[in-house]
């Protein structure tokens, strides 16, 4: 009851309004790209990218540059490097990603240990600080959301054929390398931009959980993508409200709500959706 009474006051706070909008956009964006990433078996890629981003942040701190500015080029470079490694190496992708991200993490910790003047909170890097999101951050995320949506609408057929089989897609006129690269770079930029709000440890949940939940309950591809977007956005808003009302950390609250949504989808798929 007290929580309901506190809600209007909470919603009146400017930083909370920005956080809710940021959560909605970040969650929806994660759900959008996650719907393709999960089917293309890139879930671990987003996780590895998130963890490796800590190195980008550490380099920014070490060089005295705003870490957010370093993060986007770092993530894109990381994605391109991993893409090349996956194509040229004969090692399994998950093993390769594990090597790259654990090495990045090791370098990140070493880099951070060299900085004795860092005043930032490591907790913020790990779990994000969505309450500290600014209007310029929101504009960047909104622009990215429009770009991602446009790209996926234009390339929907190509994405589905690529999920099914690269050669099938190529034979039906899809430019395999261009689309693979475009999607990976887009995913990298989204992960990098979302890290400020979500943190390096929880970013993959934003990409993977809504998509997996949507996959359980959807029958058509367009419904699946839409459900993933709606789940991503709504879980973020609910998680943030819960976090604000209970004074618990925001990023983990969002992920817990996403997990609850996943459990509900699982239940729904067992009880309602035909096998």
């Amino acid at each position: 009851m007290a929580a309901v009474e506190a809600l209007p006051a909470l919603l009146a706070l400017p930083f909370m309004q920005r956080a809710l909008l940021g959560g909605l956009l970040t969650g929806a964006l994660g759900g959008l790209l996650g719907s393709v990433a999960v089917l293309r078996q890139l879930s671990f890629f987003s996780d590895a990218l998130g963890h490796s981003a800590l190195l980008g942040i550490s380099l920014g701190i070490l060089l005295g540059v705003n870490p957010t500015l370093v993060l986007v080029p770092f993530a894109v470079l990381f994605a391109l490097l991993v893409n090349q490694l996956v194509q040229r190496s004969r090692l399994p992708t998950d093993a390769l990603l594990n090597i790259v991200y654990s090495t990045s993490l090791a370098f990140a910790v070493v880099a951070l240990s060299l900085v004795d003047t860092y005043r930032g909170n490591i907790q913020q890097l790990l779990f994000g600080d969505i309450l500290g999101i600014s209007w310029p951050d929101l504009w960047v995320i909104a622009g990215l959301a429009v770009l991602a949506l446009g790209y996926l609408i234009v390339s929907l057929r190509a994405q589905v054929l690529l999920i099914l089989n690269d050669d099938l897609a190529g034979a039906f006129g899809v430019r395999i390398s261009a689309h693979r690269l475009a999607f990976i770079v887009l995913l990298a930029v989204v992960v990098a931009v979302s890290i400020k709000a979500v943190g390096v440890l929880l970013i993959s949940a934003f990409v993977v959980i809504p998509a997996c939940a949507a996959r359980l309950v959807s029958r058509r591809f367009s419904t699946y993508v839409l459900t993933s977007v709606l789940l991503g956005g709504s879980c973020a808003v609910l998680g943030l409200l819960g976090s604000g009302l209970t004074n618990l950390p925001s990023g983990p609250c969002v992920v817990i709500v996403q997990f609850a949504g996943f459990l509900l989808a699982l239940l729904w798929s067992r009880l309602v959706v035909p096998a």
């Binding site: 089917l39 999920i163 099914l164 089989n165 099938l168 006129g173 996959r215 029958r219 058509r220 591809f221």
Partner: peptide, 20 residues
């Protein structure tokens, strides 16, 4: 290109695939 159709040995349909 539009005159060619191709079917590979297998298509990756693992788990529940949301496509009718």
């Amino acid at each position: 290109r539009a005159q060619v159709a191709y079917l590979p040995q297998s298509l990756a349909v693992e788990g529940r695939f949301p496509l009718t």
